[in-house]
Design a protein around this nucleic acid. Sequence first.
DNA 1: CTGTTAGCGCATTCAC
DNA 2: GTGAATGCGCTAACAG
Lengths: 343, 343
Amino acid sequence: MATMNDVARAAGVSTSTVSYVLSGKRTISADTRNEVLAAIEKLGYSPHAGARALASNRSNVLGLVVPLRADVNVSVVMQFVAAVVTTARTFEQDVLLLTQDDVGGIERVVSQSVVDGLVMMDIEAKDPRIPLLAKLGKPAVLIGVPDDAFGISCVDFDFAAASRISVRHLLELGHRRLALIGSPQASLERHATYADRVRSGFEDACRAGGVDFASRACESTSGALAEALEELVTGPDAATGLVVHNEFLLPMLRDTLATMGLKIPGDLSVVAIAPTDVAVSSTVPWTAVSIPAHDIGRAAVEMVMERLHAEKPAEVRLIVPTLVQRATTGRATTGQAVDGAGH
Amino acid sequence: MATMNDVARAAGVSTSTVSYVLSGKRTISADTRNEVLAAIEKLGYSPHAGARALASNRSNVLGLVVPLRADVNVSVVMQFVAAVVTTARTFEQDVLLLTQDDVGGIERVVSQSVVDGLVMMDIEAKDPRIPLLAKLGKPAVLIGVPDDAFGISCVDFDFAAASRISVRHLLELGHRRLALIGSPQASLERHATYADRVRSGFEDACRAGGVDFASRACESTSGALAEALEELVTGPDAATGLVVHNEFLLPMLRDTLATMGLKIPGDLSVVAIAPTDVAVSSTVPWTAVSIPAHDIGRAAVEMVMERLHAEKPAEVRLIVPTLVQRATTGRATTGQAVDGAGH
DNA sequence: CTGTTAGCGCATTCAC
DNA sequence: GTGAATGCGCTAACAG
């Protein structure tokens, strides 16, 4: 409840001195500085965010637009959110939550100067919000890369590259028939950028490698998984190498395969494209390309902050994927390789 | 960028008139009102949040403290968050996100008047943050009921009652040996209030019904589930009625039981205590006590808002549970009933 | 190195 | 029913 004026009086200085002690925007002698700090301590002073926002034209709040859809993996969303909040705090910013479906929300918080900048998650290829965002003229960063970013910066995991190195890994192990189990149909249909890119990266790499492939979407249920596996990894054209980009299915995958009489990696090598924690903390040590949700969230905030003070051209930052081989991939057996090669 | 002054000038009135048109705090003639509204429209005016906060001493922002732990179910957290944000918007409030582990965050946003009130999730029985929160003197609501709420209002699902009606349902079906599979050990150890209450409600109801029971925690992995089931529902003392309070395990439960040669509800009746969507949208139609995350979140915001303007005594609001019988519970077979009764 | 001062945009009390 | 004037608490020139 104490104001800056109270502090100034208590310390026997002027308000601007107090202000400068706090902001560090000009040099203050150690003596007066200490007196000010003592007064602040004694009075339990803390600055009023609204007053500061009014005078400085900065609210120290970032807006974060999160999806609350059923078809996006909430644990991944939470990881992004955690990364964004944590990183924002290192810049002394708080985070205001906006939901995807609150259509007017973005415009509102910008025009009322509630936020200094925005981070938007779950971008679609032709996302109608992007031109709107661009018009508002506040620093913003998209997590995901749309077809046209309208001059807004983007950051994302390089999902296409993730698919490619997964395929390459399986090829090196001698597999000649590959399959991809992707995101739920709904994600593909609305062209969530990650879903599209995983698939095209997979298909391109398979074609480049000259091998047979099949890919399909899969809902996050055990029934859908069983059906997908039935189609992809059994029968005469069975794939021996599988890429899975649906972290929700991973916990069920081994059991479902076991039911079908298939062993990992004996009968089937599996590469997971999944958030770091899912890939490693699971009971199965998946060979995986980890989606570093934390790095992406951090990068997004850093990019916004860079554009808060100074003009800076838009950029697209792609986080380079790494594949870590664990227990779920192995060399194709001779039979498998011959099978595939003979096709 | 237009200010209230610009609007006033454009409409040929004074700023106070514009202010009152906006706030409705005094009557304005239809004529001037329309002129003001036209000017607002024409200039694309929107009020500056900081200025408003400074003058009115209200920020129109609520703080929401969310857990980002590994052992809480993120999808439930997201449902709460969605409900809180949605409800807050109906009160013209935005939501600022604070993380559980940002210790000083709560105090900071309160003392800087960043938020008007707080909602705190994932309360523990003896939560050290509660006395701190109480001292800050801002309207606040806890989602969860601690041992001592220090005069702060609480809202929660009545987990104990949820357990009791689950037990009663199984008793009515003739089951005489019941088991509970609860939250992960970590939740119990830190005395998350829901974990404690589910267990004690279960045990009390079993004792009251005079039946055998066993309960245990269970990690959210298929291995842990198999182990728990092995212990609880096989062998001579096998339970025939099971209550599961771990939504993460539900997707695996039927398959795991099938592997053990047990059918639902033929060999084992199962009641799930789970968020609404998990219980009904799953491939298995669980007999369930639904946790209405949305209702709880909404109630929390409403309770904060009620305390924003007027003083109002603290209250504890418990959301009454309802059990919906679906496909996973049935009458105990004669053999089961006799077995149990003969014990 | 420090003080003085003029706003930032809005809410509200008083006067009419 | 409307306008003028003051202050909310802070920042950042400007002036020493």
